[in-house]
Each structure stands twice: as C-alpha cells, then as structure tokens.
Deep mutational scan, measured.
Amino acid sequence: EFTQISGYVNAFGSQRGSVLTVKVENDEGWTLVEEDFDRADYGSDPEFVAEVSSYLKRNGGIKDLTKVL
C-alpha cells in the first residue's frame, strides 16, 4: 500500500523490508514513474534519503510548500 511521502504533493512510497518503492503521479492520478530503492545499496540513511529525494525532483515530484521540511 502506497502512502504519501512527507513534503511532496504527488509522491508516494511503499516499504517492503529494506526496499522502498516510490512513485510520482500526475494531476489525474496516473503513475508517471515508479522505482525501487534498496536501503542496503546505500552507505547511510542521509545518502539514501538524498537519492530518493533527487529522483522525485527529477521526475516531477511537487514539493508541498504548506509544510516545513
């Protein structure tokens, strides 16, 4: 089950073990991109978060400006 990723309007994530599946949706709710990120592939949590965040930004993730990150 996908849940909204904090700080984004149209990005959602689903966690299974160490694998986080993220997706970005358009205004109609269609999935634009979907990608798996395995936490085990990264040396640290900040590196993992930075990679996921960068992916979302590159692929149309819209920041939720009503929330302070």
Score class of each variant (00 low, 15 high):
E1W: 09
E1I: 12
F2H: 06
F2M: 07
F2Q: 05
F2T: 04
F2S: 05
T3M: 09
T3A: 08
T3D: 06
T3S: 10
Q4T: 08
Q4H: 08
Q4L: 15
I5E: 04
I5N: 04
I5C: 12
I5T: 04
I5S: 04
I5P: 04
S6P: 14
S6H: 12
S6Q: 13
G7E: 04
G7A: 03
G7I: 06
G7V: 04
G7W: 05
G7T: 03
G7P: 07
Y8Q: 05
V9Q: 07
V9C: 13
N10R: 07
N10H: 07
N10G: 02
A11W: 04
A11T: 03
A11Y: 02
F12A: 02
F12V: 06
F12H: 04
F12W: 11
F12L: 04
F12I: 03
F12C: 10
G13F: 14
G13H: 08
G13N: 02
G13Y: 13
S14C: 15
S14W: 14
S14I: 13
S14F: 12
Q15V: 14
Q15P: 04
Q15N: 08
R16L: 07
R16F: 07
G17L: 04
G17F: 04
G17Q: 02
G17T: 02
G17K: 03
G17N: 03
S18N: 07
S18R: 06
V19F: 02
V19C: 07
L20D: 00
L20S: 01
L20T: 03
L20G: 00
T21A: 03
T21P: 00
T21N: 03
T21G: 01
T21W: 05
V22H: 00
V22G: 00
V22E: 00
K23A: 04
V24N: 00
V24C: 04
E25P: 00
E25N: 11
E25G: 05
E25K: 15
E25W: 10
E25Y: 15
N26H: 07
N26A: 06
N26G: 07
N26S: 10
N26I: 06
D27V: 10
D27Y: 10
D27K: 11
D27R: 10
D27W: 09
D27S: 12
D27C: 15
D27Q: 11
D27T: 12
D27A: 12
E28P: 04
E28S: 11
E28K: 11
E28N: 11
E28L: 13
G29E: 02
G29Q: 04
G29L: 03
G29C: 05
G29F: 04
W30K: 12
T31G: 06
T31R: 06
T31D: 03
L32N: 04
L32T: 08
L32S: 07
L32E: 05
V33T: 08
V33E: 05
V33L: 06
V33Y: 14
V33M: 09
E34R: 10
E35T: 12
E35C: 14
E35A: 15
D36E: 12
D36T: 14
D36P: 05
F37T: 00
F37C: 02
F37E: 00
F37W: 01
F37P: 01
F37V: 00
D38M: 02
D38I: 02
D38S: 03
D38G: 02
R39C: 08
R39K: 04
R39F: 03
R39G: 00
R39D: 01
R39L: 05
R39E: 02
R39Y: 06
A40S: 10
A40G: 07
A40P: 01
A40F: 07
A40V: 07
A40R: 12
D41M: 10
D41Y: 07
D41P: 01
D41V: 07
Y42P: 00
Y42N: 01
Y42M: 01
Y42R: 01
G43H: 09
G43K: 11
S44K: 01
S44V: 02
D45I: 08
D45F: 13
D45Q: 06
D45L: 12
P46C: 15
F48P: 00
F48E: 00
V49F: 15
V49K: 08
V49E: 14
A50Q: 09
A50G: 05
A50K: 10
A50F: 09
E51K: 09
E51L: 07
E51D: 12
V52H: 01
V52C: 06
V52F: 02
V52W: 08
V52E: 03
V52I: 13
S53A: 13
S53M: 15
S53T: 14
S53R: 14
S53W: 11
S54L: 09
S54A: 14
Y55S: 04
Y55M: 07
Y55E: 04
Y55C: 07
Y55T: 02
Y55R: 04
L56C: 07
L56A: 00
L56T: 00
L56N: 00
L56E: 02
L56H: 01
K57W: 08
K57A: 14
K57V: 10
K57Y: 10
R58P: 02
R58E: 11
R58I: 09
R58N: 13
N59E: 05
N59D: 01
N59Q: 05
N59P: 00
N59M: 11
G60C: 08
G60M: 05
G60F: 08
G61W: 05
G61D: 02
G61L: 08
I62Q: 07
I62H: 05
I62M: 08
I62D: 02
I62K: 09
I62A: 04
K63L: 14
K63W: 12
D64R: 08
D64Y: 08
D64P: 04
D64Q: 09
L65K: 10
L65E: 10
L65F: 11
T66Q: 10
T66S: 11
T66G: 09
K67D: 13
K67R: 09
K67C: 15
K67W: 10
K67F: 13
V68I: 11
V68D: 14
V68S: 13
V68W: 12
V68Y: 10
L69K: 13
L69G: 13
